[in-house]
Design a binder for these strands. Structure first.
Lengths: 158, 158
DNA sequence: GATATTTATCATATCGACATGATAAACACA
DNA sequence: TGTGTTTATCATGTCGATATGATAAATATC
């Protein structure tokens, strides 16, 4: 529901590349393992992102994927564009044209929600998600932790 | 995108029944023609709505479908419930559990949009759609049309 | 009860999203 | 130049949503 599984893969993969590919490219294998998604399918997805200009891909040893723009300039709309049409304002009831004289029954009330959806994808950046992932994960039970350093497990492989 | 085709059929069909089934039940055939959707598939969809308690179905001559509750008491959430899980707040990135300590990267910013979506389906009623369909369809170019009778082509098939 | 009408249901087909496995093409490096 | 590494691509498979056609079950009317 809401967006396709491929778009979800794309967002998660781009966030991963943004976090781990600052100096060296990130290969498909590690990304697929980290996200637990099928490797070859992710390969196709990343290739689509490369064609869309979101990622830069390099073959051979020392190859992999890197962002072409800083995370703060990369929106969810850009990342999902190859797989999802988030730019258009979709009619809730599926009409190709909806609005004005040809409005469907739900148009008036759906319109504001639809606009909010568009806004979300157009304004949220990968940098936002990186920040939230780091800051927003405070457990409900507040426990003062002296050194706020990186404590995450980053389990390499089993 | 956003909701399934079956859910769109369901909403449109229920609106049609609400508008045309005030005194007598409405049969599948006319509904399918009016909405231009496959007849037998719509039959299954309406049957699911009957099982869900949204519609009352009657077989045989003078049979058809009618609402079980007034349109002002029937929400989009109820109509789409058999086909879509709009009650749950879905994680944008597809996690089964998302929030609190196990929040995904997008959770914080997506949450408010997700809530707005839920609110829309929970608070919008079929009566709202009936009103909007009648009132909201004023064309930009105002042309007084005396008899607003059925003008659709209803082209059978080529 | 016989018949026509209408929904209910079954068996099957189609189509696109998602996935898999194998092979080709590019690249670094010795 | 040769070899290993990595992405790119192709051919195919699976699965669920959507759709189709035929048949069964219920109901009103005569």
């Amino acid at each position: 529901m809401w967006i396709s599984g491929t778009s979800q893969y794309a967002i998660r993969a781009v966030v991963h590349v943004a976090a781990h590919g600052v100096d060296a490219p990130v290969r498909v294998g590690p990304i697929a393992e980290a996200l637990d998604v099928p490797r070859n399918y992710l390969s196709k997805t990343l290739h689509a992102l490369a064609r869309a200009g979101v990622l830069h891909s390099e073959r051979g040893p020392r190859g992999g994927f890197q962002l072409t723009v800083p995370p703060s300039r990369l929106t969810l709309a850009q990342v999902t564009a190859p797989f999802e049409d988030v730019k258009r304002k979709h009619c809730l009831l599926g009409r190709p044209q909806c609005g004005g004289a040809h409005a469907c029954a739900a148009h008036a009330r759906w319109s504001s929600v639809s606009t909010a959806l568009q806004q979300y994808f157009a304004s949220t950046t990968i940098a936002d998600l990186l920040d939230d992932a780091r800051a927003g994960r405070t457990p409900p039970t507040v426990r003062a932790r002296p050194t706020g350093g990186p404590r995450r497990a980053t389990s390499r492989r089993p």
